[in-house]
Design a protein around this nucleic acid. Structure first.
Lengths: 338, 338
DNA sequence: TTGGGTTAGTAAATCGTTTTACTAAAGAAT
DNA sequence: ATTCTTTAGTAAAACGATTTACTAACCCAA
């Protein structure tokens, strides 16, 4: 009964074939050219094929300090934005012999630090990180440890580092411009009270695009809760002139739509609505919601391209990965006056 | 400049403190009691604290064959159902010194096999898997290799293995019963053409609960596409008597709602709608959609409890983890006649 | 015949742990 | 004074790979 498939090691192969471990290793790693005869190479390859040998990756990592693994620390991997980026990256990385492992920081510094430790212990080759708030000094420390680290979605303005982000300022300006073209005159902004760069920049873009800004900033953990909803209600009551709202994140928009429904405010008749980040929900909503969609595939491509470039030139510290891509406005019913 | 934080190893500690590697290891692993003097223990602990020593986990895995890591191979980690389960499990596992790593099979056998290899090479301690279709023999193989494997969401009826699933038959019957109570007389069923156990069982539950069943089964990769939508339209046209539909998955329901909107069929006036799996979208939809919600937290708890039990008794092959939990019907507007 | 170059390989160190099997010294018991 | 235990520790092998520095045999030219 005991089928107990005994794992075969390089040593087993060497013994079985009556050759040295070194020879086997050379064949496995393609370093056999001009060193080992074709006959022996063939013999080893056939045997490996036959027994389905796979190198023990703990041993490899221990010896080389590399793991052919990139970790993607997303804010929340269950958010379609992050999970789609993850999936895209996975495919691209695989073609180059790398694996992606992903996880969620939930925007918590504590959690991010734990994960960082865990993956440092595992000798991952590169970190792609959406840092939580106040993660600047940790990021700096990580970079100083000579790790390959690329920030995603958000970055720190006064830290010299690699990043791939959305051009939030201009994307927001485009969204406001779009709303103006649709005939809205008093555009309000609902954002997150956060010092993360996208939140800062989206607000900034809004402020620069509108003559008389009216904005509400809600704390991250109040969104969708009573506190946040009350704030939004009050905001609307206090600013009756507002004829359209731009939400800075999809969770704000979802919470906002609930409030609007509760207050029986008709969209778009009484209030135009647009938000960042496309989601199935927005397309299916009644009315469908206009959005600023992020170029997910391109973001993923730049992330992997950049990371691989850094991994490929470990000595070259003149390389800088700094990409800022634009979003696209997708017009839907929620911004159609008349 | 070169801050290059040199990683400190157990050997460095031993040398620095003028003691043996063994002693350090004993202290680190709590095996120092009755072997090493309190003074030395303290000295080592203080030094470890001071330099922030962390064991190299590749070396540990290599030596012990364990990694304190459980892998969760979900169908799709971006599906809120799976990602919520993942998050729950993570917290529970962490308390017991285990980490969860997750990934998506996308229901593809190829992909699942790749991932399986990858994680086998990494010496993960246990596999929690939502197997794709036709993964029975691979699962069997894995079990025969003496790995700890617990299936989730779906299982194989004629394979002796560990699993945690929803009681799909009875949950479906309850949903049908609920629809009947709401006054619907001709309840149709839209499911997935799949041999995965939940799809089979939900259909079976429906067939057993209804006198004159009318069901449509759509291929997985036709859902949301033209082919699937056409099938659904035809199904509705062919069965004008149907006054309510139970969708077997949330993606079917979402695709279905799009078709109903296109055909201008009023929910719930002309057609009642209910579906499996709760989602924010269903609550926010106009009208809100009644659902069968899965006991996510309990499923996660059973998965981790079971997995840890198996990990804790590696010798005991009499243990069987076999849990089948019930879903809950959440009534909403889409099933309110009048 | 000597020396140099090539070909085909191998021995052994190393990565950082864990763990088994030892020992030396001190104290207790007879 | 001898033996027996306990205490406090250590040496060395092992896990499975990679890689540096060797060698032995052969060929060729001078």
């Amino acid at each position: 009964m005991k089928s107990e498939k005994q794992k075969v090691s390089i040593k087993d192969i060497a013994k079985e074939l009556g050759i040295s471990i070194t020879t086997v290793s050379f064949v496995i790693n393609g370093k056999a050219k001009n060193r080992i005869s074709d006959k022996v190479i063939k013999k080893v390859e056939d045997y490996i094929e036959k027994v389905g040998y796979r190198p023990n990756s703990s041993a490899q990592s221990l010896r080389t300090g590399k793991s052919q693994t990139i970790v993607f620390m997303a804010e929340d991997i269950s958010d379609p934005f992050f999970s789609t980026v993850a999936k895209e990256m996975e495919g691209l990385a695989f073609k180059h012999g790398y694996r992606i492992i992903y996880c969620s920081t939930e925007n918590k510094k504590e959690r991010a630090l734990e994960l960082l430790q865990f993956f440092k212990d595992k000798d991952v080759d590169a970190f792609i990180i959406t840092p939580p708030e106040n993660f600047e000094s940790e990021t700096k420390k990580l970079i100083e440890e000579e790790k390959v680290v690329v920030l995603f979605d958000r970055h720190f303005h006064n830290l010299d580092h690699h990043y791939v982000v959305l051009d939030n300022v201009n994307s927001t300006k485009n969204a406001v411009e779009f709303l103006k073209e649709k005939g809205f005159k008093n555009i309000g902004f609902v954002g997150l009270k956060s010092n993360l760069s996208p939140m800062q920049e989206r607000h900034q873009g809004y402020l620069e695009a509108v003559p008389h800004p009216m904005s509400l900033l809600i704390k991250f953990n109040a969104v969708g809760k009573k506190q946040g909803n009350d704030q939004l209600e009050k905001f609307l009551d206090d600013h009756p002139a507002i004829d359209a709202i731009l939400f800075a994140t999809n969770s704000l928009a979802i919470a906002g739509l609930r409030v609007l429904r509760k207050k029986s405010i008709q969209v778009p008749e009484q209030l135009g609505v647009a938000t960042f980040d496309d989601r199935e929900l927005f397309e299916l909503h009644t009315p469908s919601i206009s959005v600023v969609s992020q170029p997910v595939a391109d973001l993923a491509k730049e992330l992997i391209k950049g990371t691989l470039k850094l991994l490929g030139h470990p000595e070259d510290n003149t390389i800088r990965i700094r990409k800022s891509l634009s979003g696209t406005v997708i017009p839907r019913k929620s911004t159609e006056r008349n």
